[in-house]
């Protein structure tokens, strides 16, 4: 009785395929978007592949070394040194949360090629209180 129109069917197929791809590709890493320094330190397989690490950028730990940015990420009393290839985003600063993506080396240094700056859900004008120290 219904003759489904061809463009509509094609569109529905593309959308279904898109959904399938997203679910397949996305959910693998998505549901645990990052790991903490403690989890990486405790995991013997941590150096096996690319992963994401999140923590607070330790104040005073940022230095620049041969085109790389070196800093430490800390959470729950554990710290991991990160060597970042390239320049982090402008919003990157000590005391802020960051997520780095890369591989943990055998020397315990995390070699990252992408820094994402996390920001919290608190909003205040400049100069109200010292930002970053709240957490």
């Amino acid at each position: 009785m219904t003759r489904p129109n061809r463009a509509g069917l094609a569109l529905a197929t593309v959308l279904l395929a898109g959904t399938g791809l997203l679910v397949q590709a996305g959910l693998r890493d998505t549901l645990s978007y990052y790991r903490t320094p403690a989890e990486l330190a405790a995991d013997p397989d941590a150096g096996a592949g690319r992963t994401r690490l999140s923590g607070v950028v330790v104040p005073g730990s940022i230095r620049h070394d041969r085109g790389q940015t070196v800093f430490r990420l800390a959470a729950d009393g554990h710290e991991i040194t990160v060597r970042q290839q390239g320049v982090p985003p402008e919003t990157f600063r000590a005391g802020q949360d960051a997520v780095v993506e890369g591989v943990l080396g055998p020397d315990g240094v995390f070699r990252s090629d992408q820094v994402l700056v996390r920001h919290d859900n608190e909003y205040r004008p400049a100069g109200a209180t010292s930002p970053g120290t709240a957490r």
Binding site: T19, L27, H119
Partner: peptide, 22 residues
């Protein structure tokens, strides 16, 4: 502007795209 990435494979972003597709 703030994270330094247009897109991330983050649960909020992925689920929002699923919502759009649905």
């Amino acid at each position: 502007a703030v994270w330094g990435a247009w897109w991330a494979w983050d649960p909020r972003l992925v689920s929002t795209v699923l919502l759009l597709l649905a």
